[in-house]
Design a protein around this nucleic acid. Structure first.
Ligand code: FES
Ligand code: FES
Lengths: 147, 147
DNA sequence: CCGAATCGTAATAATCGAAGTTACATGAAA
DNA sequence: TTTCATGTAACTTCGATTATTACGATTCGG
């Protein structure tokens, strides 16, 4: 299956918005991310429903961040997106009768659960503010390289 | 994305084969796993190329394990299957110009790399022999429940 | 030798979810 | 009232696994 890149997308959009005064339109975000405004609205709509951003219609409208960058974690965003499946590998049959398959499933499920726990734990420790700071560092380094 | 269930499949097949004397046909494995013989051959073919099993054509043919159950790990099987993508979540663009996106990618890549390392480490510690033993335990418990 | 059993493999279809597109309605501002 | 912008449904496209069909190649038994 095609990978779910919405987490990456909303992070990109949120940081972009954080760098700007005033609302950003779906059209702008779509151009910047090489995608379609409707896709932006669909995904950002989930963040709006969670209260992380607000949208305004009509002239001068667009999207704005309502959350504290220090408080929003990657884990929270993952949850807001509906906790999509993390792994592209899984069991052939989730509820097998066969004891052989049950043993295999149990072993794999254990390993995946542990890796998922680690990933989510890391996600819960990364805030938007940290990503913004990391971007500032890269930006400064880039300008230094240019000068 | 549809999940890749080949690791689960080959484990099931290998344990099934380990419990049996003599070769097992693709047809038998396919019935047991509710799939198609051609799918079995495609997947088992990778294990054959890696020397883990042998296949014999013609009447009385089929598949047999050639590897030591104590030596074969889940990680080895994962590699044999071509190291398919582990995650169903990823970056929107793997080689972005935009520094914002580069920062996002770096943070996500780090977290995923760490989770992947943990998963592969666990995989490298689980052998076919251990899964077989786990099956034996379940089988014994099941018979006790029946008696 | 012949014929059934079995694997080997290419080519094609079915499937499933994310992403993209089109279309139109709704609401806000100039 | 015209224009800008979101809201959303419906549909298409895309990407990856899995399933199916078809046929060739090999091995065993009689
Ligand atoms: S060994 Fe496959 S169904 Fe039990
Ligand atoms: S912020 Fe999106 S392309 Fe740079």
């Amino acid at each position: 299956m095609k990978k779910d890149s919405r987490l990456s997308s909303v992070l990109h959009a949120l940081l972009h918005m954080a760098e700007r005064e005033g609302p950003v339109t779906s059209e702008e975000l779509a151009v910047c991310m090489h995608t379609n405004p409707v896709v932006v609205r669909r995904t950002m709509g989930l963040l709006r429903d969670a209260g992380l951003v607000v949208s305004a219609r009509g002239s001068g409208g667009g999207w704005q961040i309502m959350a504290d960058l220090e408080q929003v974690t990657l884990r929270q965003l993952h949850e807001t997106l509906g906790e999509p499946a993390i792994f592209a590998i899984g069991n052939r049959n989730e509820t097998p009768q066969c004891l052989v398959e049950q043993s295999v499933n149990a072993a794999l499920d254990d390993a995946f659960a542990e890796a998922e726990a680690l990933l989510l734990e890391r996600f819960s420790r990364i805030t938007l503010a940290e990503l913004a700071a990391e971007f500032q560092r890269r930006h400064a380094a880039y300008r230094q390289g240019q000068a």
